[in-house]
């Protein structure tokens, strides 16, 4: 692993009286693919949005490549690429127009942008959709456009929030391999996912967040060791750390309810 890329200390985030993040401390190095796992509503998206300077923390310090996210939000946004949980794009633009807009805001040379858009569009097989309105595209195609828009400026930090959602297996594989290549090139990658197999196969390290706190962090091997079972699956560790071990009784109870 490389140098320290992301440093988080004593991070809290409140929405009114609701505490979304409850004292997060975390270090992520460049060249790492870091997975953020957690049940729905555990604070993953909030954490990712704070790291890329979209949200401000209530209390705490976050630095990205040595830049304080509160003091230098524009530079943090310049060096990072963010894929949100659901692809939010301008539906009245075509993917081509949207990516041109993004490229221009990020001040990418037209010929460089053209080449990159072409390569990405070919890789994700959306060449024939590039002149359709985004509003008319399928969820998966929108997701591909969102991913391209986050990678088009060759960011140093790549933040993906459930980016695999809606992708076909081929595109998901391309994205996974792309992330591995980016990491080998020294980029920092953080992504949240519910697909634990993806996390297991791609991430160097991961953190499990539960109710705004990190309840476990480390490599998959370290997590297995901590769990006391060398053949434990990530799913078992996840469920154990998030307090849901007895799912059988829940399923049985539901079954009984439906039968009555």
């Amino acid at each position: 692993m490389g140098e320290l890329s992301i440093s988080i200390r004593g991070l809290y985030k409140n929405y009114g009286e609701t505490r979304a993040l409850d004292g997060i401390d975390l270090d992520i190095s460049s060249g790492e693919i870091f997975g953020i796992l957690g049940p729905n509503g555990s604070g993953k998206t909030t954490l990712l949005r704070i790291i890329c300077s979209i949200l401000e923390p209530t209390i705490g310090y976050v630095s990205v490549n040595g830049l304080n996210v509160i003091e230098k939000p524009l530079i943090v946004k310049e060096i990072s690429g963010y894929v949100p949980e659901t692809p939010v794009l301008y539906e009245s633009l075509t993917p081509m127009e949207f990516l041109t807009f993004i490229g221009s805001v990020r001040r990418i040379e037209a010929n460089v942008l053209s080449t990159r858009v072409q390569r990405f569009a070919e890789a994700f097989e959306i060449m024939d959709k590039m002149d359709n309105f985004i509003g008319s595209l399928s969820f998966g195609t929108k997701q591909k456009v969102a991913i391209i828009s986050a990678l088009i400026h060759d960011p140093q930090i790549i933040i993906l929030d459930e980016a695999m959602n809606g992708l076909d297996p081929r595109s998901a594989r391309i994205l996974k391999n792309l992330l591995i290549n980016y990491a080998l090139a020294g980029r920092t990658i953080i992504f949240s996912t519910h697909v634990l197999e993806v996390a297991e196969s791609v991430c160097n390290r991961m953190a499990i967040i539960y109710r705004g706190k990190i309840v476990d962090v480390g490599t998959f091997k370290e997590m297995k060791e901590k769990s006391g079972s060398s053949d434990a699956k990530l799913e078992d560790i996840f469920l154990k750390m998030t307090g849901d071990t007895d799912l059988t009784s829940i399923v049985n109870s539901l079954g009984e309810t439906m039968n009555h």
Partner: peptide, 14 residues
């Protein structure tokens, strides 16, 4: 879905 006006082989960015 609207039909594409592109030839699908080359993208041009002005």
């Amino acid at each position: 879905a609207g039909s594409s006006g592109m030839d699908g082989s080359k993208l041009r960015i002005s």
